[in-house]
Design a protein around this nucleic acid. Structure first.
Lengths: 348, 348
DNA sequence: CTGAAAGCGCTAACAC
DNA sequence: GTGTTAGCGCTTTCAG
């Protein structure tokens, strides 16, 4: 690779010091009262040489790189990819560039990414934290590194965080089902202590309670991230098992769970919503061709990312950063899958 | 943000020069013959202070940052997100971190990203180039910046590039259709001169020719990236129009086109494959619940990304980089949608 | 064995 | 008005 042209090259060519070049190129010729002639000359040579400032050098000088680190669970997951896209946009608007990495919900990968990004002197981090990573996050706090959690947080840790209204969203989803006559409502969620999941579960339970329905523990199935596919399949089969008081509706805590569950429901030839009402948290392309339209909670991903970047930048630019919790409202897109329950079901 | 701990802090604390610290921390104590005692002490203090090397400073020193720039069309598109994921993985394996950005198929955004990444002194670029960006790419060449194109390239430009076997893939897809008895095969593609699309189109035409079918220009519909949805819808309606010799099979050049087209086909109540054979280039989650399984060409995205990174790294590390064209084989996943055409169709 | 010092590219306080 | 220089954190040559 050829040597890139530096401020020094320009200085030599024009016959001035690098200082003058720097002043002129940063539009500070007024303050430094650089001569008109010389300024013009410098600009011309810079253009001729196709000069591009070295942001690495500038970063070293200023101790800030105008780079953000983004750690998501998995960038290939459309949910996170969509967040990444808006983050990129908002960051760019503010003159920042984004480094990214995927944690795969694994503690060691998360720690590695944090270390790598810090070594690269990012100005701040946007993180979808992994379960059990409190100590990693706390270290950021003690080190005074600006960061914001996104999508999920910890109940036992005071941090800036931007999330969806998980509780309300799931509450209103389940309420929609109870209002439509469903009484035995099951839920499949991921088995994690992270707040987004806990809040969704709480929303589900609270909605049942407010509808005067007594929650039954067998209705709630928690599956691990690892081989969630099999586990979701098993959970669905248990929940709809005819021999033991099957549920009449199901809510799914994420789109990945939904898609997998719908496959089983389809394979079992259950009719949605007549046999089983359905609501999903988040949408999926796969809903497109399911034989009936799926009711789902639509998070405002765009707003979440925007707020995440803005909150982070506020932190970066403030001398006394303060913890900020942002909750972004979601909407519910009503399809056929949560439709009114048939009152009288003919038992054959 | 608190001051991060530097080599200097360690040196002061131990009471040696920064040089020694540098040697020890880089495992070069042997060459520099640093004393055992002192080395141990340095290491201890470094650990105590939780020292993280400043890669920015190192980058400035070495003129290399161990950072790659990735420019895709749109990171929120699962296709590119999946590529990004594997690139991240392969880059990490080699000690690189990835900056990313989306070009939206737009020339100015592409140029902006290139500039930004170069200013940040990335060691190389992986680019899915935008139509008409030859000059941008050529400038990289003249500047001697290592880069590799991915997914698509230019027919009029000699560059390193990693792509799928677009021609063969589409050829064999169409051959599958002709072998199964389809004779009037249409195609919907994006309207772009980029090689991936041109190669797919050529594969389609060549397969027709080899099957003894004369290509009809009205069979090939090219739609622009912008509002492709409407345009695809219109194209499908034209191709299946009963009044004017409708096609009996369709191939789609990308998954986004496929999903949109299938929606229309579904809405029009056409039966796949009886009324219409279907093959898609690339898969989509949405195929999951289409009423019949879709035959599709499966690119080896993992291999493409891996090769892209490897080719780029070879370029970066070689004094005399050479242009390398890598073609990654794809497979065809056969579903029901391309099944044998019913010989005698009962006309009502 | 150890350390001073130069230099990567850039900026800004401070001389001249 | 204009230019010198120190220094950001790190590496490495060369002198002690």
């Amino acid at each position: 690779m050829k040597k890139r042209v530096s401020i020094k090259d320009i200085a030599e060519k024009v016959g001035v010091s690098t200082a003058l070049v720097s002043y002129v190129l940063n539009g500070k010729e007024r303050e430094a009262r650089v001569g008109q002639e010389i300024a013009k000359k410098i600009r011309k040579v810079a253009a001729d040489l196709n000069y591009q400032p070295n942001l690495i050098a500038r970063g070293l000088k200023f101790g800030r790189t105008n780079t953000l680190g983004l750690i998501v669970a998995d960038i290939s997951n459309p949910f996170f990819a969509t967040l990444a896209r808006s983050i990129e946009l908002e960051a760019q608007k503010n003159g920042y560039t984004v480094l990214f990495g995927s944690s795969d919900e694994q503690l060691d990968k998360s720690q590695n990414l944090i270390n790598t990004f810090l070594s690269r002197q990012v100005d701040g981090l946007i993180i979808t934290p992994v379960a059990g990573s409190q100590s990693q996050i706390e270290e950021l706090k003690t080190k005074g590194i600006p960061f914001v959690l996104m999508d999920r947080g910890f109940s036992d840790l005071e941090t800036s965080v931007v999330v969806t209204d998980n509780h309300e969203a799931m509450y209103s989803a389940v309420k929609l089902l109870t209002d439509n006559g469903y009484r035995k409502i099951g839920m499949i969620a991921y088995d994690t202590p992270l707040t987004h999941m806990q809040d969704r579960i709480k929303g589900y339970k609270d909605a049942l309670k407010d509808a005067g329905i007594r929650f039954q523990s067998k209705w709630l199935k928690k599956v691990p991230f690892e081989d969630y596919k099999e586990r979701v399949a098993r959970a669905v089969l248990q929940l709809i098992d005819k021999k033991s008081q099957p549920v009449d509706a199901l809510v799914f805590a994420t789109n990945s769970i939904s898609v997998q569950a719908l496959k089983i429901i389809h394979a079992q030839k259950l009719v949605v919503p007549d046999d089983l009402g359905i609501i999903s948290f988040d949408e999926s392309d796969a809903f497109e061709f399911f034989y009936t339209s799926i009711t789902y909670i639509k998070q405002n991903l765009n707003e979440i990312s925007k707020k995440a970047v803005q909150t982070l930048l506020k932190n970066i630019n403030s001398v006394t950063p303060k913890v900020e919790r942002v909750i972004v409202p979601s909407t519910i897109v009503v399809g056929v899958s949560s439709g009114k329950k048939l009152k009288e079901k003919v038992v054959v």
